[in-house]
Amino acid sequence: MTKKYIADIVPLNEEFIGTSAHGTAEFTQDENNLHIKIEMFDTPSKTQHWEHFHGFPDGKDAQIATMKQDINHDGLVDLPETETVSGTTMVPFDNAPHEMNVPNDNYPVSDADGHFAYEMDVPLDQLQAKFKSVFGTDELELAKRVIYVHGVPESLKLPDTVSGEVADYDAHVTLPIATGKIRAID
């Protein structure tokens, strides 16, 4: 049985960043495969954009972060501030989502106009096995997840209050620029 999901991706932190990143994500899941298609517009140009779905391992329904999550009132919602409503980073949309290796340089890079398109077929059995080893369940539960697109240029001066370092990557890489709630399509 094929299941389809979509997310309308809306801007986050746009006033500080100076662009209103937006787009759509489509997911088609059958017995063997998860097909992922994401297209983004008006992202910071010529920048690598990490993109993932986030959620709660216990199955709680994740929601997108808004400026209400800016708990330190620095004018930006950074990665740690998203966790209360969105959960943790789960599956990356890079060159090998089924490996769930989040910190890497294999994510899309936007063109000079801030556009990028990402499309990938992921072997569902491999993704579910890795998901189970990390989160204790092989149920992706896409309708309970949210998508985030991250990344601003190194030249953008971020306040010292912005955090979100992951491995050797700083908050420029992890700062959310757009988010969307994944929902099932009948």
Score class of each variant (00 low, 15 high):
His54Tyr: 15
Gly59Glu: 11
Glu99Cys: 06
Asn72Lys: 06
Ile38Phe: 13
Asn72Ile: 03
Glu31Asp: 15
Phe41Arg: 11
Asp70Cys: 09
Asn72Cys: 06
Val85Asn: 09
Ser86Ala: 15
Ser45Phe: 00
Thr84Asp: 13
Gly55Asn: 09
Ile71Met: 11
Asn101Lys: 15
Leu34His: 10
Ile36Phe: 03
Asp78Glu: 00
Asp70Tyr: 05
His49Arg: 07
Ser45Tyr: 00
Asp61Ile: 12
Phe93Glu: 04
Thr89Ala: 09
Pro57Phe: 06
Glu81Ser: 03
Ala96Met: 13
Asp78Trp: 02
Thr47Lys: 03
His22Phe: 04
Phe56Pro: 02
Pro92His: 12
Ser45Thr: 03
Thr66Glu: 13
Ser45Arg: 01
Glu99Asn: 10
Lys46Phe: 01
Phe27Glu: 07
Glu83Cys: 00
Asp58Tyr: 08
Lys37Asn: 04
Asp61Phe: 13
His52Leu: 12
Asp58Asn: 15
Phe53Gln: 00
Met90Ser: 05
His98Thr: 00
Met100Cys: 12
Asp74Val: 01
Thr66Val: 03
Gly75Lys: 02
His54Glu: 04
Met90Tyr: 10
His49Gln: 10
Asn95His: 12
Glu51Arg: 05
Asn101Leu: 13
Gly75His: 08
Pro97Ala: 12
Val91Arg: 05
Asp70Ile: 03
Asp74Gln: 05
Asp94Met: 06
Thr84Val: 12
Ile36Asp: 08
Met40Cys: 03
Thr66Trp: 09
Thr43Glu: 07
Ala25Pro: 00
Asp70Met: 06
Asp42Gly: 02
His54Lys: 05
Gly75Ile: 02
Glu26Ile: 09
Lys37Arg: 14
Leu76Ile: 13
Phe41Ala: 02
Glu81Ala: 02
Phe53Tyr: 14
Pro80Lys: 02
Thr24Asp: 08
Lys46Thr: 12
Thr47Asp: 04
Asn95Ile: 07
Ile36Glu: 05
Asn32Val: 02
Thr47Arg: 11
Gln63Trp: 01
Pro92Gly: 13
Met100Arg: 08
Phe41Thr: 10
Val85Ala: 11
Ile64Lys: 08
Leu79Pro: 05
Lys37Tyr: 11
Asp78Gly: 01
Asp30Pro: 00
Trp50Asn: 02
His35Asn: 07
Asn95Lys: 07
Phe41Gly: 00
Thr66Ile: 06
Val85His: 08
Ala62Glu: 10
His73Val: 01
Gln29Lys: 09
Asp74Arg: 02
Thr89Lys: 08
Ile64Phe: 04
Lys46Leu: 15
Asp70Pro: 01
Glu99Lys: 14
Ser45Lys: 00
